[in-house]
């Protein structure tokens, strides 16, 4: 056996394989996941007849379907970070599986980073599928430049949502049940983040609040690039907002996670000890 810790990538590969094997034994869960995405996409097709996005901030955007699919694709990643990550951490903390993993000598922080890797890969696959559907609906600019800019915003978005999950996960590791709060945070994103309707339809106060939600600058950037064909220079405002939020959330998440891990290890809160 090796005398040094496994690399992050190798650990992630092994944990991903475990998740894949578990899901391969339940293929219906994958089919259900894809069907859910398809149902929502079809619903958006109909909603497109009712919701007018041809005014205000969204006037440059073409079809509602492509417009809302960008938001829906990002919502998949937001859900994986905000809701799935703390749920996985709480489950791992309350089971003896985390103990079994820790006894292999893998660093605990590294384990926590890679534990949701399969859930993330499913969310990423769903997001890419939805974006492809949006491209097929021919609302996107096909040029390479805007596509690269959109991909940059997508990566920043994934990191932002991971940081949100890291914050919620810190509470889960510390012995709390943050899922209820996470669900609320996700709902706020759905209602105020401009996913299914433009934010400028909201009252002014809510517009400001919605603009500072982590999903907002990412959505603005991706829509601007994919549907408006905007360059990175034109999208400097949402980019700056996204990067600022990223720095703040990563720093906050890291601080909280460090504190929670130390506290949990001291109090034996990682792993299962039923009375």
């Amino acid at each position: 056996m090796m005398e040094r810790s496994l690399s992050l990538w190798r650990t992630a590969g092994i944990v991903w394989w475990l998740g894949y094997r578990e899901h391969a034994l339940a293929p219906w869960s994958l089919v259900r996941t894809l069907l859910e995405s398809l149902v929502v996409a079809v619903l958006l097709l109909f909603l497109g007849q009712l919701v007018d996005v041809g005014e205000g901030a969204a006037r440059v955007y073409g079809s509602y379907l492509s417009w809302s699919l960008i938001g829906f694709a990002l919502l998949q990643l937001c859900n994986a970070g905000t809701r799935e990550l703390p749920r996985l951490y709480r489950e791992a903390r309350e089971s003896a599986w985390l103990d079994a993993l820790r006894m292999t000598g893998v660093d605990l922080r590294r384990l926590l980073v890679v534990l949701p890797v399969f859930a993330w890969s499913i969310a990423a696959a769903r997001a890419l599928l939805l974006l492809f559907f949006g491209w097929w609906a021919s609302g996107f600019s096909g040029a390479w430049g805007p596509t690269v800019v959109a991909a940059l915003f997508l990566v920043i978005g994934a990191l932002l949502f991971w940081a949100m999950g890291w914050i919620a996960g810190a509470f889960a590791v510390g012995g709390h049940h943050p899922e209820e709060v996470s669900r609320g945070v996700l709902l706020v994103h759905v209602l105020l983040g401009g996913i299914f309707f433009p934010r400028d339809l909201l009252p002014l106060g809510l517009q400001t609040l919605g603009g500072w939600l982590p999903i907002a600058p990412v959505i603005d950037g991706m829509r601007g690039a994919l549907m408006g064909g905007a360059s990175l220079a034109e999208l400097h405002e949402p980019l700056a907002r996204a990067l600022l939020l990223l720095v703040v959330l990563v720093a906050l998440g890291e601080g909280l996670m460090r504190r929670s891990l130390l506290r949990a290890a001291r109090r034996g809160l990682l792993g299962r000890m039923w009375r």
């Binding site: 475990l18 094997r21 578990e22 034994l25 339940a26 089971s95 003896a96 599986w97 103990d99 079994a100 006894m103 299962r272």
Partner: peptide, 12 residues
């Protein structure tokens, strides 16, 4: 030696 059921992935 962790004997708890939850120390394994049960479906695997």
């Amino acid at each position: 030696v962790l004997r708890d059921k939850t120390s394994f992935r049960p479906t695997l």
